[in-house]
Simulated assay, not measured.
Amino acid sequence: MLRTAASRVLSKSFTKAPPQTIAQRAASTFRNESPFQRSSTKRSQILLLARPAKSSFYATESGLPFDKPDLKAEKQYGAGHLKPHPDIVSSESTTRHVFEARSEQETKKVKGALRQDFETIKDTFALTEVPRESLYIGAAGVLPYAATSLSTVFLASEIKHIHSTGQGWIFSADTAHQLLDWITPIQIGYGAVILSFLGAIHWGLEYAGYGGCHSYRRYLYGVVPTAVAWPTMFMPVEYALITQFTAFTFMYFADARAAVRGWAPPWYSTYRFVLTFLVGASIVLSLVGRGQIINHDGTLRNAVDYVEAGKDTQWIALEQEEKERYRKLAEEEAKGEADEEEDDDKKDKKKGEK
């Protein structure tokens, strides 16, 4: 193959090694070193890393380290006298008050932030996007729950007042107890109905295909609250109310997540927040009202009393079982002894006949 001057220059450029970087040169240097030289180099690098930099020393204006102070400057400052500045330094300048006066600009910022928060709360509870029919019927559905809760608080206050003064405002102690025994199952039963209704909404959305069909995932949202709500009818009052409160809170988070996923209308999470807040407040009021009279009234028992009563019932049942078992053993022993005596008598008769 013929080679020209241009082809020779081009071939030299291809065969020429590329320039090495700093890292490559360092690597080649370390590859050519002996193990002893490598270890010594590493030790030197460690010492360099451990050595503090010059900029880490505290130095004065003259550039000397901090342990060699400028004595002349200290003498000069020591010979002088401090000048008082009452306008700048005073007893109030070094005091931080708990309640300090804000400037007009800071006050405007605080008022603006509070106004913005108030507008956010107002928009949240206004529920402008919620259909009017759903809003009115939902609010009406909360009224029975709130009425039973307020009645529980009033009756509890009536019973407490009777125990403290000996006389009630409207009802007697027996009447207040009887009304309380009627209202409590109504509140728990109505709560179970509401929870079942909240679960059934997801079945309706699945039937309508809102946000697509999600099969078992959305059907599960309708089954769980019903399975949790109805067993509370057989629980002690405090346990039932706390369980329903937890179920209502769980359903709110489930509904809010469903709205975010597009399984429910966008306004549904805000709507559910307001209703859940009202129902949760009613349950808390009922628990507080019943807690006021547990310590004053022996006929009204709390959850701990129910547990202790259950334990006592179990011990009584065990004692009865033990007594019954011992009685049966005693009867069997007596029967065995009687059988042995009869056998002995029969044997004696046979011997006498012989």
Rank of each mutant, 00 (worst) to 15 (best):
Y58C: 08
E133K: 02
T165K: 00
T246G: 08
M1V: 09
F234Q: 14
L220H: 07
S55F: 04
I137R: 11
A53V: 07
K16C: 07
G336T: 08
F99W: 08
F171H: 13
V98C: 00
D87H: 05
E333S: 10
K68Y: 06
R43G: 09
Y145T: 15
R301E: 15
R3K: 11
Y77S: 15
G310R: 02
S55V: 12
A5K: 06
S93D: 08
E238N: 08
E33L: 14
G291I: 02
A17K: 04
I22E: 13
H177K: 15
F171M: 05
I294G: 09
K75G: 13
E106I: 10
K12R: 15
R217T: 13
L198K: 03
P266I: 02
F154P: 04
P69Y: 02
L275H: 14
E324C: 03
T165A: 02
R96E: 11
Y190L: 10
A79C: 08
H161T: 14
A208F: 11
G298E: 03
L300P: 04
D67M: 00
A101R: 06
V304L: 01
T152N: 04
K111D: 12
V304E: 04
T246S: 11
L180D: 05
S7R: 02
T184M: 15
S90M: 03
I170M: 11
P19L: 09
G291D: 07
E322Q: 06
E340R: 15
R261Q: 13
K42F: 09
A156N: 02
Q24H: 13
E342F: 09
L329P: 02
H214S: 10
F234S: 14
L49D: 12
E308I: 02
F171W: 10
